[in-house]
């Protein structure tokens, strides 16, 4: 596939790009008119990206700025359990925690969503009934995605049928790395279609992509193919989310916004364990995309251990005393 398509009024040629087969791009990309362009990927400089996030890590957040940031982080959390040993009990407990992260303080939370395997969507849905907490389900043969497309689409449809509000799909990293971008695009577009009303988060599994250039390109494809969110990782591969890879993806989101005015969401997942890390991510979002993205509608953390650390820090801010981890429920 060497013909790529783009908005006529993008204004800058080096940026991209929509892959299109027949009129699928019209269905998912909201295009009015398309013009054929040669595709020039936008390069990403590793050192400069890492320098930038390191500089943003030095933002000093004190007192109310810290409290506000931490509360915001909680509201953006997709509390996640994705294990072979998951049970109804575990998932239900997690749902309770998502709705009421801190028994003693109702002003904290709820979390944005809980994220589970399709088998637990119904259970979660029931447990969360009446709350604002969404149910996100991984799908498309998570985490490897190494199944035939019909199975992956069926996986998606089932999860939506079970009540998932959001689908976290995985891209075909093999296709991405072997240069079959069309396959990557088509699978995302097909999954988007299968999602129906559910929001689609596209997991790039950046830890397997090898470079920021590939991450950038995968992000562009995911957005072009209709993803509502782009997400770093499954949590099953190291490295998972990093501030740098998140910034690379936020920059793609920014360029897409500049071109189209459309806001795509971002979800770093895996590896975000501490309140300090969470604040760093929020700083990156704030200073890259601005106020509009400081909302669970457009930014999520995929995490499990993060919540308790954030709660500990909030309690420390409230009481002035350093907290013990034993004081917080481990669900």
């Amino acid at each position: 596939m060497d013909r790529l398509e783009t908005h006529e009024d993008l204004g800058f040629a080096s940026d991209l790009l929509i892959f299109s087969r027949e009129n699928r791009s019209l269905a998912c990309g909201n295009l009015r008119r398309v013009t054929v362009l040669f595709y020039t990927p936008v390069p990403v400089d590793q050192v400069a990206i890492e320098e930038r996030v390191a500089a943003l890590a030095k933002r000093s957040l004190k007192k109310q700025a810290k409290v506000q940031g931490l509360k915001l982080a909680i509201s953006m959390m997709d509390l996640t359990t994705l294990e072979g040993k998951d049970t109804a009990g575990k998932v239900t407990a997690l749902c309770t925690k998502a709705m009421h992260p801190l028994d003693s303080d109702n002003s904290i939370g709820p979390c944005a969503a809980i994220c589970v395997y399709p088998n637990f969507v119904r259970i979660a849905k029931r447990a969360l009934e009446g709350s604002s907490v969404h149910v996100a389900s991984v799908a498309t043969a998570f985490p490897s995605g190494q199944s035939p497309l019909p199975i992956k689409l069926e996986d998606t449809r089932r999860a939506v049928e079970f009540g998932a509000d959001e689908i976290d799909m995985v891209i075909d990293r093999g296709a991405m790395l072997s240069g079959d971008y069309q396959k990557v695009f088509d699978e995302i577009a097909a999954t988007k279609e299968a999602c129906g009303p559910a929001h689609l988060k596209v997991i790039l599994e950046t830890g397997e992509l090898g470079s920021y250039d590939v991450v950038r390109r995968a992000s562009e494809i995911a957005i072009a193919a209709g993803g509502d969110f782009i997400k770093t990782s499954t949590g099953k591969i190291q490295p998972a989310a990093t501030p740098a890879v998140t910034l690379v993806m936020l920059e793609v989101i920014r360029d897409h916004f500049y071109r189209t005015g459309k806001k795509i969401g971002m979800k770093p997942a895996g590896g975000v364990r501490t309140a300090k890390q969470a604040l760093h991510y929020l700083v990156i979002v704030k200073e890259t995309l601005g106020d509009a993205w400081l909302t669970p509608d457009l930014f999520r953390f995929g995490a499990s251990a993060l919540l308790n650390d954030v709660l500990m820090q909030l309690e420390k801010e409230r009481t002035g005393a350093y907290q013990a981890s034993e004081d917080f429920s481990k669900d």
Binding site: L61, K62, A65, R254, G290, D291, L294
Partner: peptide
Amino acid sequence: KPSLDFGSAWEYAPS
């Protein structure tokens, strides 16, 4: 246009 809004949704306190 469109441009981003770097407003006051989350202010850093003086440090």
